[in-house]
Amino acid sequence: MESQLSNVLNIENLSVDVGERNILKSLNLTIKSGEIHALMGPNGAGKSTLAQAIIGNPKYKITSGRILVNGKDITDLQLYERAREGLFLAFQEPVAVQGLKYINFLRTAYMSLHPNEKLEYKKFIEQVQELLGLFRLDKSFVERSLNDGLSGGEKKRMEALQMLLFKPKFVILDEIDSGLDVDALKIVAEAVKKAKENGTGILIITHYKRILDYVSPDFIHVLVDGTIVESGKAEIAKKIEEFGYDYYRRGEASAKVG
């Protein structure tokens, strides 16, 4: 059934400013159902900016270009509306809300994202608890406060959990691998593969090759200074590891392409 899904996320000539600064410059990217894309790049290249601009954080001003989900232009939609169109970001540093219980948050979010589904509370809790098990998190997490007093690794796992629970069309994972130990990384990588099997289109933002060894992305893109300078397959990750991002900055990549 999943294989029949054919969603497409198009990012066309996207330019984004933060404050007065131009960060992204005419960026193009297309992600389809069941594809895993990795976006690599040095600090400050604009990776997180791309993630925030896609989901509609108002701080990130789109100055030109558009974002389309299955051909529908969502560039002017608010955050919550884009989420309802099927976009999901696993935050690099998810913010805490004291006293807001996970179960309450997850349920409110789920009902907002799937307004036509009749949600049985008991089944929903069971589903959440099953997922907690999958991520090796204690069942008592449902009663804990959102991102409050969690370790870095726990927060990341809860972000990945939401990815499976909410069933979005497209997922952006913003440095989901930072702060994870090897065991947790494997668990998260399994979840990403599962999302892929379910037909989700995935964009993994990372500095490191490590997570890519577990999830084997279909495409790797290199972002430098707000532009994708190279796209390709697994060999790119090796190249980055060998030569570093300076390789692209010096313009050697373009010289060697083709």
Binding site: K59, L79, Y80, V95, F105, F166
Partner: peptide, 27 residues
């Protein structure tokens, strides 16, 4: 703003996001 944005990124409207934060504070 970060709290509001996070909750809104999960499909929750702004006023509902505020309610959740306030009710969490009072929990």
């Amino acid at each position: 703003e970060e709290q509001i944005n996070y909750l809104m990124s999960r499909g929750i409207r702004e006023e509902d996001a505020r309610s959740l934060i306030v009710l969490g504070f009072l929990d």
